[in-house]
């Protein structure tokens, strides 16, 4: 990725993409669906990405990759947001994974429709306010990772832009496998989440430290919690620290915080048990 893209200051989605492309190398074809990363690539005929890029429609990231993967030995990487992955593109993603298409699908998750200005998505967490859930979302974050794992692909991992070395390692590892690989990257967004732009990395780290986001990988069916999360499994910071730092959770009730915590604990428990 070249310097001079048009992302907002503090954008973790494009920061993560930079590290992803660094790990992928030049022998890569990148597929983008509509979203922040597609909007930030530059305006025709310019581009900030120095590998071939194929833009495709919102629901078509994975299905377009099927055609590309059938036509090349290069790395085929989809970089798509949470809406494109967990909502509109879920059917095509499901087929591509079931078919074990030889590609790496990366979902950068800013937990809302960012490029259209913060509408609720399937991965928006419980209690978070968006422009379409002004009173806070009443449903829990969609567990896209379990959905993905249900396809029994060779490699799946979560990552966070705030831990680039971990992300880099996981991309490298993913690309060493044949078949479908999936990495789910948390990419905090100052604009959508409501925190100062210089705090992006801080918020990303806080997500892990409070247990709101767990770094792990499922390698050939075996789950292992990644270092940064493993170290703090039994000594999480209070979730309130994470919520209070973001205006999207402002005004969240104690009851909702309890509900969030209950759900979070269950997810972590499930992960550790596996």
């Amino acid at each position: 990725m070249l310097r001079g893209n048009s992302a907002c200051p503090g954008c973790q989605a494009n920061l993560a993409l930079r590290h992803v492309l660094r790990a992928c190398g030049a022998d890569t074809i990148l597929i983008l669906t509509p979203g922040c990363s597609a909007a930030c690539q530059g305006i025709y005929p310019d581009t900030c990405i120095n590998v071939p890029v194929l833009n495709t429609a919102f629901a078509a990231g994975a299905s377009t990759a099927i055609g590309v993967a059938a036509s090349t030995d290069s790395n085929v990487v989809v970089y798509a947001g949470d809406g494109a992955t967990a909502d509109i593109g879920l059917a095509s993603l499901s087929f591509a994974l079931e078919y074990n298409t030889d590609f790496l699908y990366i979902c950068y998750d800013n937990e809302a429709y960012g490029n259209t200005g913060a509408q609720r998505s399937g991965t928006t967490p419980y209690g978070a306010r968006t422009t379409t859930t002004p009173g806070g979302k009443r449903q829990h974050k969609k567990d896209i990772d379990s959905i993905v794992c249900a396809h029994q692909i060779p490699y799946m991992a979560t990552a966070a832009a705030a831990y680039p070395d971990d992300l880099y390692r996981k991309v490298k590892k993913a690309l060493s496998y044949k078949g479908s690989k999936f990495i789910h990257v948390l990419t905090p967004c100052p604009t959508l989440w409501g925190f100062p732009q210089e705090k992006s990395a801080y918020i990303g780290k806080l997500a892990i430290k409070t247990g709101a986001w767990v770094l792990y990988e499922k390698d050939s069916g075996k789950i292992s919690i990644s270092l940064w999360s493993k170290n703090i499994l039994d000594k999480y910071l209070p979730l309130e620290d994470y919520l209070k730092a973001q205006s999207r959770f402002s005004g969240i009730s104690d009851k909702d915080i309890l509900e969030l915590k209950r759900n979070m604990n269950e997810s972590v428990k499930r992960l550790v048990q596996e």
Partner: peptide, 15 residues
């Protein structure tokens, strides 16, 4: 939708 998307993917590779 995916059928044509996949053809677009392969087509963009010159196939």
């Amino acid at each position: 939708h995916s059928a044509l998307s996949a053809c677009i993917g392969a087509g963009s590779m010159g196939k």
